[in-house]
């Protein structure tokens, strides 16, 4: 089958590779770009593990062909942390709130939460639940993830101590970086 040339921006860098039209964007990133942070669970749009940003908009990369991303700008989970490895507030909060166990679904959650909080920095609990409903997690029972989404809402400076409620318990945390915490 004829392969087509696909040129796109991935995490700020221009990438040019070939792909069969039937290759999904998720497979393209993993197999042609070596970016295996984007995980594939169901491969038909149900689980949300492959969520990433296309031109800033959160989409499922298993429901888009790589050829459709030609000329567009893609942000994967590899593009979320700072260049020196410092976790983004969302990533730090997921770590600190036990928002992951096996980690398989985590890249998708990081991307969905990043888009959610960018578009709605002060979501209600209902909006958080709705915003997370497109991502499956089979380990955590979601409560740690919910807690993590609430943490970046507290725009604290490093060293600040803030309290929040998690599952009916009052938890006090010291902020290490903006939006991130340690116990």
């Amino acid at each position: 089958m004829t392969e087509l040339t696909v040129r796109l921006t991935v995490n700020g860098e221009t990438v040019e590779q070939t792909a069969e039209p039937r290759m999904t964007l998720a497979d393209f990133l993993r197999e042609r770009c070596g970016l295996t942070g984007t995980h594939l669970g169901c491969e038909h749009g149900a689980c949300g593990a492959c969520t990433l940003l296309v031109d800033g908009v959160a989409v499922r990369s298993c429901l888009m062909f790589a050829v459709q991303a030609d000329g567009l700008s893609v942000t994967t989970v590899e593009g979320i942390a700072a260049a020196d490895g410092t976790l983004s507030p969302v990533q730090a909060a997921l770590r600190d709130c036990h928002g992951l166990q096996c980690g398989f679904c985590t890249p998708g959650f990081v991307m969905s939460i990043t888009a959610l909080l960018r578009d709605n920095p002060t979501p209600t609990d209902e909006e958080i639940r709705e915003g997370l409903s497109g991502n499956f997690c089979r380990c955590t029972g979601y409560q740690g993830i919910l807690a993590a989404v609430r943490v970046p809402l507290l725009t604290a400076a490093p060293g600040d101590v803030r309290s929040y409620e998690n599952g009916g318990r009052e938890i006090s945390q010291t902020f290490r970086v903006t939006g991130g915490t340690s116990d």
């Binding site: 749009g45 949300g48 969520t51 908009v57 959160a58 989409v59 499922r60 429901l63 888009m64 969905s112 888009a115 959610l116 709705e130 915003g131 409903s133 497109g134």
Partner: peptide, 12 residues
């Protein structure tokens, strides 16, 4: 509209 899939689905 909000009943269609999830926001990531509705974006496309």
């Amino acid at each position: 509209t909000p009943l269609i899939g999830h926001f990531q689905i509705r974006n496309r």
